[in-house]
């Protein structure tokens, strides 16, 4: 049995209180949400925060609230609920799909959306769909909020724009525009309990059912220090009529947009090749979704 290093545990009942507690810990405190990442790292001896602050008691941090034009997701919402909620499955099924391949059912019952974002693993499952949907995060420090597009949030592996005493308090996702299709494709060694070898999230929005691509987002995961936009693929898609040929070209470009490393889960060359395959598949699936609506 591994023993966790010693720490003090706080469970404030308001966000303001949480900010206060965290500020008082200086930089030696960490937020614990589901614990599926931080506890593993603490057991391995990679982290030993002196204070852990849980958000679980704070009202509203584990819910999904519909707002005009979108939804607000609390950071402590467990991943399983992204799959279970009707609203998610019907309207934001891209996120549901990514959630459904995260870890295992046991992990999904503990891991939170906020944790999956803040830990900033380059292969995390939820950032790619959230970026494809144009999600924004709200951060709070000393009672003051700031809003940031998720696109600008990640810096590198384990690193984000969040300040040591700042807390992720909300994730905002807009309703998809009409004629939007999307998909998340994750390549895994096994069919469960896996971190992606490569994953791709795409979203395309047409100007009309049979029209041209008005907006395109192609997010690549596990092939760079953080989830990235396949910029040249997105560029070539926008303004064009969606065709198999176009998708193939975009997919090929996407593989030039990534900078994978060779690590324990896969080689760089293979990952590049997989970006192409997965992007092509995801684009085709997204288009099919628009057509079948």
């Amino acid at each position: 049995m591994h023993l966790l290093p010693k720490f003090d545990f706080y469970e404030p009942d308001s966000m303001a209180e949480a900010c206060k507690v965290l500020a008082e810990t200086k930089t030696e405190g960490k937020i614990i949400a589901g614990g599926t990442d931080i506890m593993v790292n603490m057991k391995k001896g990679l982290l030993s925060p002196k204070y852990l602050v849980s958000l679980a008691k704070i009202p509203g941090v584990s819910s999904i609230e519909p707002i005009t034009g979108g939804i607000v997701i609390g950071p402590n919402l467990i991943v399983a609920k992204l799959i279970e909620f009707d609203l998610m499955r019907k309207k934001f099924n891209l996120l549901s799909k990514a959630a459904s391949v995260l870890g295992s059912p046991l992990i999904r019952n503990r891991a939170t959306i906020g944790g999956n974002i803040v830990t900033a693993r380059p292969a995390a499952d939820l950032p790619p769909p959230l970026m494809a949907m144009g999600a924004r995060v709200v951060l709070m420090r000393k009672g003051k909020e700031r809003e940031l597009p998720l696109d600008d949030f990640f810096v590198g592996p384990g690193q984000t724009k969040i300040k040591p005493t700042e807390i992720l308090v909300k994730i905002i996702v807009d309703d998809p525009p009409p004629f939007t299709g999307w998909d998340y494709v994750k390549l895994m060694h096994r069919n469960a309990l896996e971190i992606a070898i490569v994953a791709v999230a795409v979203r395309i929005t047409l100007d009309s059912p049979d029209g041209i691509i008005k907006d395109a987002r192609v997010i690549l995961s596990a092939v760079a220090a953080k989830a990235i936009h396949a910029v040249s693929a997105e560029k070539i898609l926008i303004g064009e009529k969606p065709t198999a040929k176009l998708f193939a070209r975009a997919a090929s470009l996407a593989s030039t947009d990534c900078t994978p490393i060779t690590d324990i889960r896969g080689g760089a060359e293979y990952r590049c090749a997989m970006v192409e395959t997965l992007t092509n598949r995801a684009l085709s699936a997204a288009l099919l979704q628009i057509k079948s609506k």
């Binding site: 295992s104 060694h189 096994r190 069919n191 469960a192 309990l193």
Partner: peptide, 8 residues
């Protein structure tokens, strides 16, 4: 170190 899951 991957051993098969019930889905494999």
């Amino acid at each position: 170190y991957r051993i098969p899951t019930a889905l494999d």
